[in-house]
Simulated scan of single mutants.
Amino acid sequence: MRPAPAPATTRTALGFLQVSTIRGAARSYVCEPDDDAAEPRLLLGLHTSGEATLIRGDAAEPCRAGELFVCDPAERFTLHESEAFELHLVRMPRRALTLTDAQTRALGRRAPFAGGAVAPLLVPLLRELVGVTPGYLPRTALHLAGGVAEFVTLLALEEVDSGPRERGQDRQDLVRRIRSHVDAHLWDRELSPASVAAAQHISVRYLHRLFESHGSTIGRWIQHRRLEEARRELGRPGSRDITVAAVARRWGFASATHFSRSFRAAYGVPPSAWRDDRTRLPGSPGTPTTDG
């Protein structure tokens, strides 16, 4: 019996996203590690037709058409395609995602999925985008790539929120209310453990105990959320017209100096460098190149 012909692969770019589309007959498709990638990346996969078994490490999971899966492209994975298939692999730089390393790892271990609040929105968007990728103007493509990155960030946060429930529904609901209150008042420089506790009619001591059980502190959570939103704003196309100091004020930082120091400590680069790198149009001077 003749071996199945090698699958046909096309590669395109959508802003800072690298899209590979693979079509072929039933076979095993091995994705080797991206050892020569210029920077850490995350890989989002979607079958538009076919059914496969996804092998990551020792885990084997069914992967059907319309289901998303996430992998670390620095690690080898295999898809045993059981029939003719079309597969889209979208590689994105991790710097485009406002996620911690732990959140990124958790998302990469998630079984292929199609449900939840985010996947039903992202799947048809990806199908549409990869079908007409070359037709977008560069700035439009950059906006669309940013939108995909936002959805992937939401996927990771949704996975955290939908994890095992801790004992005590009232306690869990209280933590959610506290986080919602923090998100609604990030702009307020007076936001503090004392003001949060007062808004929820609990003691500051009990507030600290709630966050200790989540492996954090309320102060670190407030700063983490402020940095996340500031980072997201700086990464949007068009943000070059906004000063770093204005972004710092908008998200409740006492000064631009404090913001820049905190941002660099969290992400390894100053906020201005993050904005310049994230909003640079493809093909402009200084844009890093990848092999897709």
Rank of each mutant, 00 (worst) to 15 (best):
V152T: 13
R261N: 10
R177T: 10
R189H: 10
F211E: 01
Q223P: 00
S262V: 01
R179G: 00
L174T: 12
F263K: 09
L157S: 00
R236C: 05
R220W: 04
S260R: 13
G215A: 06
A199T: 06
L234I: 06
S272N: 05
A266Q: 15
L157C: 05
G163L: 07
H214A: 05
E159Y: 10
D188A: 12
D241F: 06
S162E: 13
V160C: 04
W251V: 02
E233G: 00
R236W: 02
A265T: 13
H181G: 04
W251D: 03
G163Q: 15
Y267A: 06
P164R: 15
H258Q: 14
I218F: 00
L191D: 06
G219P: 00
V204C: 03
D241I: 09
D161L: 12
L207Q: 02
V152G: 09
R179N: 12
A246D: 15
F151Q: 14
A266I: 07
H185M: 09
S260K: 06
G268T: 09
F259P: 02
E190H: 08
R261Y: 01
W274E: 05
R264D: 07
V269R: 13
S162L: 11
A156H: 03
R176G: 10
R179C: 03
S272F: 03
S255P: 07
R231L: 06
D183P: 00
G163V: 01
E150M: 10
V152N: 09
D183A: 15
R220L: 11
R249Y: 13
G252P: 02
H201R: 12
L155Q: 10
R176W: 08
V244S: 11
R249L: 11
H181L: 12
E150S: 10
R189S: 07
G268F: 04
H185I: 06
R165D: 14
W251Y: 15
A265C: 04
G168I: 04
A254W: 00
P193H: 13
S262W: 01
E229A: 14
L227T: 03
R240N: 11
D173C: 05
T257M: 11
S216H: 05
R205K: 10
E150H: 08
A265I: 02
D188F: 10
W187V: 01
R165K: 15
A266V: 07
E212W: 08
